[in-house]
């Protein structure tokens, strides 16, 4: 390819480029199609996984959240943006959260708190417009539940009373029927009842061999269970 050949092929490539940009120009200009989302006028469709500040879920059965102030989220939060307090409430066995404050300006939306929540009462809110005029982004998560709280406590008291009587009756029946084994089962039921109330850490099961059964482990340290699910803590014998 000589001098003129080079010049010509160079011009050719330039013309190809201009053809492409013109075709795009024509698509926008004549086809009236562009890719811009005119944001304040059009709102983007939020994805199902959209993440904004966390909030407490309002369950339909109870009409309120199910936070038991176990502080699992507060402990796992890498940004230390969750502060909550609460605990025993007069009249019911179930523990309740009193204050739940979250500083959204620190949050990195990693979702570890949601994973950590033993009662699954946390979820992302779907607030798209997160901008504000000051840096104070502390969110009071329990604010919307406060007025229902007394009502809920009353309901819960009734439920718990019923459950207690039922359990008593059941326990008596069981006692009548069988001896020690049955008694143990009743214990377990009781435990399941008080499930959500447990706050302390789960026992370090790492050292325990995988074959070890959960029941004894639980029975050993029920008060320590961070997440008092009835599940067997996996014995993850670490590979070294």
């Amino acid at each position: 390819m000589g001098y003129f050949g080079k010049v010509l092929s160079g011009f050719g490539s330039l013309l190809t480029g201009m053809r492409i940009t013109f075709s795009q120009f024509a698509k926008t200009f004549f086809g009236r199609k562009n890719v811009t989302l005119q944001y304040p006028k059009e709102q983007p469709k939020l994805a199902p996984a959209f993440r904004s500040a966390i909030k407490l879920i309002r369950f339909e059965e109870t009409g309120t959240h199910d936070c038991v102030a176990c502080k699992a989220c507060e402990r796992i939060c890498p940004s230390y943006c969750i502060k909550l307090s609460g605990g025993k409430v007069e009249g019911i066995k179930k523990k309740r959260v009193a204050e739940f404050e979250m500083d959204f300006s620190l949050c990195s939306l990693c979702g570890l708190c949601i994973d950590a929540c033993p009662t699954d009462t946390l979820e992302y809110s779907k607030v798209y417009e997160e901008a504000g005029y000051n840096r104070d982004w502390r969110v009071d998560l329990v604010a919307e539940f406060r007025e229902y709280e007394a009502e809920f406590v009353e309901k819960q008291r009734v439920i718990e009373e019923k459950a207690a009587t039922a359990k008593k009756a059941k326990a008596e029946a069981a006692k009548k029927a069988k001896e020690a084994k049955k008694a143990k089962e009743a214990e377990k039921a009781k435990e399941a009842e008080a499930e959500a109330a447990d706050t302390a850490e789960k026992p370090d099961t790492a050292e325990k061999p995988p074959a070890l059964e959960a029941k004894p482990a639980k029975a050993d340290a029920p008060a320590k269970a961070e997440v008092p699910t009835a599940e067997v803590p996996t014995a993850e014998a670490p590979k070294s």
Binding site: A47, P48, A49, F50, R51, L109, G111, D115, Y124
Partner: peptide
């Protein structure tokens, strides 16, 4: 942008994803 939208659909983030968890993914 299309990729970001696709990933946003499952991860909830556009850039700084926190999608992985030990043992799997979040969604």
């Amino acid at each position: 942008e299309e990729i970001l939208d696709i990933l946003d659909q499952v991860t909830g983030s556009r850039l700084t994803y926190c999608y992985g968890r030990f043992g799997g993914v979040t969604m």
